[in-house]
């Protein structure tokens, strides 16, 4: 497992964590490889991990009857995927599907939640980072809602 540490340390989401904190994460981490088209997780399933994306792209989708899967957003290298593991009821709200061959490191949610309860400094650090990711995604979503390239409404 020790080979994962430099990968985690280099990832934008975890950059700057103290070595001891990284060690804790390494203890909860595992390597993941997904083929194009493969589901990372599906809506309603138990959310027990999150993903540090190293390569490839993943689409967040929602299945709309009559329209099929609708892509809400895509994430890729340098991004982090999944935050439903943070809060009860620990269930995924969307489908996530690899668009390309995707490499990631999965972090076990159950494991991490326990560690964070034991070490609140680590918990605070991780929550700060997740909060930032969530804020960015929310801002981007709001911009998406603006439909800035569409026709402005007539006067």
């Amino acid at each position: 497992m020790h080979t994962l540490e430099p990968i985690l340390a280099e990832h934008p989401f975890l950059k700057g964590l103290r070595p001891a904190q990284l060690q804790v994460l390494v203890g909860c981490a595992s390597n993941v490889r997904l083929d194009a088209g493969q589901y990372v997780f599906r809506e309603g399933e138990e959310a027990n991990r999150f993903y540090i994306l190293r390569a490839g792209r993943v689409a967040l989708e929602v299945f709309v009857p009559g329209r099929g899967p609708v892509v809400i957003e895509t994430v890729g290298e340098g991004d982090v995927l999944g935050w439903s593991w943070l809060f009860p009821p620990y269930q995924w709200h969307f489908d996530a599907r690899a668009l390309d061959l995707t490499r990631a490191i999965a972090l076990d949610g159950d494991c991490l939640r326990r560690k964070c309860e034991e070490d609140h400094d680590l918990g605070y650090e991780l929550l700060k980072r997740f909060a930032q990711v969530i804020m960015h995604r929310l801002q981007a979503t709001r911009l998406q809602l603006l439909d800035v390239y569409g026709h402005a409404p007539a006067r």
Partner: peptide
């Protein structure tokens, strides 16, 4: 901003491409 049938590319506003 909005994917339609068969789009295999990125979905999201253009600013999300900048960090990477």
């Amino acid at each position: 901003d909005a994917a339609t049938g068969g789009w295999r590319g990125n979905v999201g506003v253009v600013t999300t491409l900048i960090p990477g």
